[in-house]
Design a protein around this nucleic acid. Structure first.
Length: 615
DNA sequence: GCAAGGTC
């Protein structure tokens, strides 16, 4: 019997289907000489400190540097504390039984670093010695699966990939566990002050933005606004220049001729420019863009959106949710017309779907090379029944975005009119000539400036128009806004893009901080630790968060660059470099940060005692 | 009690 092990049940079932294996057993599917089983993501994790004899949080244990790491079955939190997840234990038993009977093991976990680690941890935990082959595919279509099985790779081809994954895992443990205990202990052991490669730079971003926002000194400046009349149609224009003082602005203001002052034709049109602007349809959603959209449109948190989406996935209504790709391959594209046909009777989207039935579909989101482990989020075509309001909202975002992504470009006409009257004024107007993809939701854009006119009248250069109104406008410069769930997700995704060191920037180009699957959890962790809190839709630091930030802000652990440095080294390891040197460096860094924090945390002790939890 | 990673 050949055993195929997938990362998750949905993939195991899909592989079984392609082979025509149909006998459903508890935890696997059998048929055609194969058994198809699966994990549920990581079943095993690095054992916690107490498993190495580091009982309690004590200064003399630090730094904790286990000579050999142990694996432990994934735990869940219950009212009696942390216990082994019974579902995980059961599935491991099933996998063990299958491995014992196996003539051959085929590894079909996701094609990437963590997929490799998920399998290897199971394999080593079960002390399995049988050889294994690797299925390496980047698309889940029947053809890609069959092709992959015809081209199975020797399992040892991926030893270096496992090495890099293993280093990532142990390094995160060493730095995270030690730094957390060091800071918590030195701050008096009153609460958990967690630190980590991802959560601490994230906290730093929230704190830095908060302080920048709070300490921002607004600058007052002045502009002049006028209203002109073209044959009864009024429109607004604003001075191109900003004035630092009211006197300066007033002097110009007095020169602006207007009807009230008896000058009927005060505005001289010096230029008219009308240009079409084309906006291509947006890309399909990946998890992060969907979380951002759901936060903006419905106020859902990243965590809520992920949960709702996971439910839809489990009900087989949408494709795999934790994807980082906004593209699909040609094979999936071939199924899109049928998905669109499903929607012609839809009350909200029927009109767009009907239009797309006969239109040429945009291929902007079609690019097999940009599909990584999973493609962009799409509906499956199964008709939903009785969705809750929240599930429906998320489902509609998925379906609506699909229609947008394959729709036509939006064509706008952007008009700029320049007017002279004492100074130079400009009027901006945007008219949608052809809504294209924007017709799907038919919403007003949120980034509209209030000085913009919806439509401008037809005017010609050299025309004189009466200014019927003028106003001296007092304005203030604005700080960068506080982070909210959407902007923080975006910042995590793109962090690394601003790193100065080119090599580190390159190393982080595909990753950012965290992964699509973990970013919601990172935000939740910071909330659980009471480092940050939600205020309306914003994420702001607490006093505790700010106090921790003050201690770590100049240290490597608070910087996205740390991930860049690791990624660079991990990629070298994947390409065959030795792991000994990297491990030694991590051990050295662990010792240093632990020492630093054992000293630095003392200042926190008094501070945390006398301050309330929130700002 | 603690990381980051994956998933039901």
């Amino acid at each position: 019997m050949k055993i195929v092990i997938a990362e998750k049940p949905s993939v195991g079932r899909e592989l079984a289907k392609v082979f025509g294996a149909t006998t459903r057993k508890d935890g696997y599917i059998e048929g055609k000489g194969y058994s198809f089983t699966w994990a549920f993501g990581h079943l095993l994790q690095l054992a916690p400190p107490q498993d190495y004899g580091f009982i309690g949080w004590r200064k003399q244990h630090l730094p904790m540097l286990p000579a050999k790491f142990k694996l432990a079955i994934r735990k869940i939190k219950t009212k009696d504390g942390f216990v082994e997840d019974p579902g995980v234990r059961k599935q491991l038993d099933i996998i063990k039984k299958l491995f014992d009977e196996a003539t051959e093991i085929i590894v079909a976990t996701d094609a990437g670093r963590e997929g490799e680690l998920i399998f290897r941890y199971i394999y080593y935990f079960l002390k399995c010695k049988k050889p294994f082959k690797r299925l390496w595919i980047s698309s889940q279509t029947d053809e890609a699966i069959k092709d992959g099985f015809r081209n199975l790779k020797p399992g040892t081809d991926y030893d270096t990939l496992f090495n890099s994954a293993h280093c990532r895992s142990e390094s995160d443990w060493l730095v995270g566990m030690n730094a957390t205990q060091a800071l918590s202990i030195s701050a008096g052991n009153k609460s958990v002050l967690s630190l980590g490669r991802v959560q601490t730079p994230t906290l730093a971003m929230v704190c830095a933005r908060y302080l920048e926002n709070k300490n921002f000194v607004p600058q007052t400046y002045f502009q002049i606004g006028i209203q002109l009349d073209k044959d009864g149609q009024l429109f607004k224009a604003i001075s191109v220049a900003n004035y630092k003082t009211q006197e300066e602005a007033q002097a110009i203001f007095d020169k602006v001729e207007d009807v009230a002052s008896g000058v009927a034709l005060g505005g001289n049109i010096t230029a008219v420019e009308a240009k079409p602007r084309k906006e291509p349809p947006p890309l399909l959603h990946d998890l992060s863009s969907l979380q951002q959209e759901a936060n903006k449109k419905h106020g859902f948190t990243a965590d809520q959106t992920l949960n709702l989406l996971q439910n839809l996935y489990e009900s087989k209504l949408v494709s795999y949710p934790r994807t980082g790709s906004r593209y699909i391959g040609d094979d999936i594209f071939a199924t899109v017309p049928a998905l669109i046909n499903n929607l012609v009777v839809h009350p909200e989207f029927g009109r767009s779907a009907t239009f797309l039935q006969t239109a040429t579909l945009s291929k902007r989101s079609v690019n097999a090379k940009k599909v990584t482990d999973h493609h962009a989020i799409l509906p499956t075509g199964i008709q939903p029944q009785h969705l809750s309001k929240d599930h429906q909202a998320i489902y509609d975002l998925v379906v609506g975005r699909m229609l947008e992504a394959f729709h036509q470009e939006c064509v706008k006409e952007v008009t700029k009119i320049t007017i002279e009257s004492g100074t130079t004024f400009q009027a901006n107007g945007t008219v949608i000539r052809s809504a294209g993809w924007r017709s799907v939701f038919n919403e007003v854009e949120d980034d509209k400036k209030d000085e913009d006119n919806p439509a401008l009248p037809k005017v010609k250069k050299g025309e004189l128009l009466p200014i019927v109104n003028k106003a001296l406008l007092e304005k203030q410069t604005k700080p960068k806004p506080l982070y909210n769930e959407a902007s923080l997700l975006k910042a995590l995704e793109t962090s690394g893009k601003e790193i100065e060191d080119e090599e580190l920037r390159y190393a982080m180009k595909d990753s950012g901080l965290g992964t699509p699957a973990t970013r919601a959890a990172i935000i939740e962790t910071l909330l659980t630790r009471e480092y940050i809190s939600r205020e309306k839709r914003n994420l702001v630091p607490t006093l505790k968060g700010l106090a921790v930030y003050e201690i770590v802000k100049d240290k490597k652990i608070a910087q996205a660059e740390l991930t860049g440095q690791w990624e660079k080294r991990l990629e070298e390891i994947r390409a065959g470099a030795s792991v000994t040197e990297f491990k030694a460096e991590i051990a050295e860094y662990t010792k240093n940060i632990t020492q630093e924090l054992l000293v630095a945390g003392a200042s926190l002790s008094a501070q945390l005692a006398e301050t309330p939890a929130t700002v």
